Simulated scan of single mutants.
Amino acid sequence: MAPGLLDLAHWSTWAVCAVIKLPQLAAVLAAGSARGISVGSLLLELAGFLVFLRYQIYYGYPLQTYLEYPIIIAQDVVLLLFILHFSGNMKRALFYAVTFGGAWYMLTLQKWIIDLAMQGSLQL
């Protein structure tokens, strides 16, 4: 019974993560506006997910323990692109991509950097 229940929990988590942002994405797309969505909070959420994902990869945790995060990150990136598009700030997309890409690389330059980043993201 326990392995079946564990499988159910695993797959239901994946299913929820796969669609967690879809209602928000659909609402923004249907309205043709990102009014009411905070770019700052979305960037903070995205940064936290990226730090967590990088930490898990750096320390070699099993893929099954964090595989839902790339799915959520992809949805956040699409939502960010919609927000930038509808607000007329698509030029900022390159800035955000370079910033997050550079941070992704710099997090693992030294072990203490990734540990400090993870500790900071947990305190938020």
Rank of each mutant, 00 (worst) to 15 (best):
S12C: 14
V39A: 01
W112R: 14
K111E: 08
A15F: 14
F86D: 00
T99D: 09
L44E: 04
W112H: 14
L44W: 00
L80P: 06
L80N: 05
L124T: 13
P62F: 00
V19K: 03
V39K: 03
W112C: 06
L116V: 05
A93Y: 07
Q119I: 06
L6M: 11
Q110E: 10
K111W: 02
L50A: 08
R54D: 04
Y55I: 00
I71G: 10
G48F: 02
L25G: 02
V51E: 01
F86C: 01
L46R: 01
I71Y: 06
G88D: 03
H85E: 09
A30P: 00
A9Q: 07
V98Y: 06
G40P: 05
V51W: 02
F82T: 00
A47K: 00
A30W: 10
A9H: 03
G4S: 11
L46D: 02
K111R: 15
L67C: 14
A9G: 03
L53F: 10
Q75P: 09
Q119S: 11
M106L: 10
M106H: 03
A2E: 08
F52N: 05
L46V: 00
I113V: 08
I37C: 04
L5W: 12
L79Y: 13
Y58W: 05
S41M: 03
G4E: 13
L81C: 09
A26Q: 12
Q110L: 07
C17I: 00
L25S: 07
I72F: 08
A34L: 01
V78S: 06
G40S: 12
A30Y: 06
L109C: 06
L29N: 07
M90G: 00
P70S: 03
S87M: 05
I113D: 01
I113E: 05
M118R: 09
L29V: 08
L122T: 09
H85F: 10
Y105V: 05
I83V: 12
K111V: 02
Y59L: 04
F95E: 08
D7A: 07
I57W: 01
F49N: 11
T108K: 13
W104C: 02
Q123F: 05
Y58A: 01
A9T: 09
